[in-house]
Nucleic acid binder design. Structure first.
Length: 567
RNA sequence: CGGGGCGUAGCUCAGUAUGGUUAGAGUACCUGGUUUGGGACCAGGGGGUCGAAGGUUCGAGUCCUUUCGCCCCGACCA
């Protein structure tokens, strides 16, 4: 490609509404342009990067025997009724009617379509397993799209679906896909972590997220400093506490605790470690058929993890409750405790199981109980409710957990029969009995990967593309095109590289040196060959974008030098 | 959906408080000239229904009403 003919509109200034580095640089360097909230155009450079990532995905999918399909973007609303997700997805589904007044939905993900494609076509266990995927534009009418390509309404996702006869086979496929996804991210040159994720209300026996490590990530993940363990903070676990603070002494008793409402005050008041206090968090839990206030009890030094709370209470959603509402329910904010609590359901954090010497609210203004023994509540509902903190022990190796931020670029999921059952997608097993498919689903945000790559690989000058993501590997820059010698050399090198199959661009624009260098750095070609005034001494320079290292080489060695660096 | 901010040239923004020539700057673009190793310089030029609609007024970018769009924080989010 000749730069002089290319559609690469770079700008000196960033669009005023861009916040993230990836958004700013992708816009400034002419990769993308915004159309409306969450909608973006891909310009030639952006499209090239998109294709590069797709190619890597396609190659890796082919290696593991997944087959590419392309399902229709517009999907009949009937399918969504059938699976029940038309309600669940709510306003995120963009709905519209055709000329015959039939209702359609722009595909936000394709479980329904894929199941409907496979059901009645795959009918025997002998045809399993089957893994189908596509790389396609998705549409979700997000309440708040943001951060450029990071969270668009229209975005490109690779979504794959596998069908199995047994759980064992799903597990095998799941592990294979995890390995395959790791290879993809490694090839793309990304620093990432595979973490345990919330399986959520969808159920299934597990899911993992692939997180690209970046400060601008929207997810907080807990990772172990020494082993491979990592988890989204929504799902992070921890080892049992190593050092238990000294227990307070005292028999069961009721104490007057005037105006002692917070855990901090309570611990101070009794001079005990907050570990021995019981924290009560009231939440409104939403269910299909109404809502219900639920009390969650944790140790005083723990915080409630709302996703875990939703799972424990088997609710759909969670919301805050005001003190007025609590009072109306006969509860005493600041002094709520689990003893003789009959009006409102309670859930206890697992770390309270078997706990002794605890202090908790007495459900009476200005009174707490001390010396509480949890064994009296053994029948209660216990579940993990805590938020794993930085510094907590890793559940696998007991080393320290660290917090970091991640960009979720992939999510793989053991679905089980969540979709095959309601959609009645069945096959006949060896005994001739009908069974629903056991499914897995594997998503990867392709457009988000572009943003994630730049979030992780940029400097103050612009983008730094990696080998597998660069729109062009080499930029042959003719410093002054009016210099016939420079131009001729540049043209020759350009052709030579092109003939060798290198993705190369020739900067033959009638611009000054500085202008072209700024563009090269902004766009982020891995290598720029400067063909300039050093040519009269028989030299050109090769600049490596990642390090900005500039090295002179003999002009007649430029080609082999570049080829060496690319290999 | 709650809170906040912003819509003026392709882009970044001034001008709006206190209404009053033909609406400005920088940058980008076009022409000519000079320049050619870090976003050059000189001269000339094109480009605007001031987000939209309605209203007040002799007169509205500026005041009033309505509305649309975009961004940020939060809620939400395979």
């Amino acid at each position: 490609m000749r730069f002089s003919k290319a559609f690469i509109p770079t700008t000196k200034e960033a669009p005023s509404d861009a916040v993230l580095a990836s958004h700013i640089f992708l816009a400034r360097a002419g990769f993308t342009s915004q159309v409306a909230a969450g909608l973006y155009n891909y310009l030639p450079l952006g499209k090239r990067v998109l294709k590069k990532i797709e190619n890597v995905i396609n190659e890796e999918m082919t290696k593991v025997g997944a087959q590419e399909v392309d399902l229709s973007f517009v999907t009949p609303a009937d399918l969504w009724e059938e699976s029940g997700r038309i309600e669940k997805f709510g306003k995120e589904l963009l709905r519209f009617r055709d000329r015959k007044d039939n209702l359609f939905v722009l595909g936000p993900t394709h479980e329904e379509m894929m199941v409907s494609l496979v059901r009645n076509r795959v009918t025997s266990y002998k045809q399993l397993p089957l893994n189908l995927y596509q790389v396609k534009t998705k549409f979700r009418d997000e309440a708040r799209p943001r951060f450029g390509l990071m969270r668009g309404r229209e975005f490109v996702m690779k979504d794959g679906y596998s069908f199995h006869a047994t759980d064992e086979d799903l597990n095998r496929e799941f592990e294979m896909m995890e390995a395959s996804y790791k290879r993809i991210l490694e090839r793309l040159g990304l620093d990432f972590r595979v973490v345990e994720a919330d399986s959520g209300a969808i159920g299934g026996s597990g899911s993992k997220e692939l997180m690209v490590i970046a400060d601008s990530g929207e997810d907080t993940i807990a990772i172990c400093e020494s082993c491979e363990y990592g988890a989204n903070v929504e799902a992070a676990e921890r080892s049992d506490r190593q050092e238990i603070p000294e227990a307070p002494e005292g028999d069961f008793n009721k104490f007057q605790t005037p105006d002692v409402k917070s855990i901090g005050n309570l611990a101070n008041f009794f001079k005990v470690d907050p570990y021995y206090t019981m924290k009560c968090v009231a939440k409104r839990m939403m269910y299909e058929d109404g809502d219900q206030v639920v009390l969650f009890f944790l140790r005083g030094d723990d915080e409630l993890q709302e996703v875990k709370a939703v799972n424990a209470a088997e609710a759909l959603e969670i919301a805050d409750v005001s003190e007025e509402e609590l009072t109306a329910l006969g509860l005493v904010p600041g002094f709520m405790g689990p003893l003789e609590m009959e009006t409102v359901p309670c859930v206890f954090d697992s770390s309270l199981k078997g706990g002794k010497d605890l202090i908790c609210g007495a459900n009476e203004e200005d009174y707490h109980y001390v010396g509480v023994d949890m064994s009296v509540l053994d029948e209660g509902l216990f579940a993990d409710l805590y938020t794993a903190k930085e510094g907590d022990g890793c559940p696998h190796c007991s080393s320290k957990l660290l917090y970091t931020k991640g960009i979720e670029v992939g999510h793989i999921f053991k679905l089980g029969t969540t979709y095959s059952k309601p959609l009645k997608a069945e096959f006949l097993n060896e005994k001739g009995q009908a069974e629903p498919f056991i499914m897995g689903t594997y998503g990867m945000g392709v457009s988000r990967l572009i943003a994630a790559t730049i979030e992780q690989h940029h400097d103050e000058k612009g983008c730094i593309w990696t080998k597998e993501t660069a729109p062009y590997m080499v930029n042959v820059m003719v410093s002054n095109i009016k210099d016939a010698e420079q131009l001729a050399f540049g043209e020759a090198l350009y052709k030579e590289l092109q003939d060798a199959g290198v993705e190369v661009i020739l900067d033959d624009r009638k611009e000054r040196f500085g202008f072209k260098m700024k563009d090269a750095e902004l766009i982020g070609f891995p290598y720029t060959v400067i063909v300039g005034k050093e040519l009269e001494h028989g030299n050109v320079q090769i600049v490596e974008r990642a390090t900005l290292e500039k090295r002179a080489v003999f002009a007649d060695k430029a080609f082999t030098e570049i080829m060496d660096r690319l290999s």
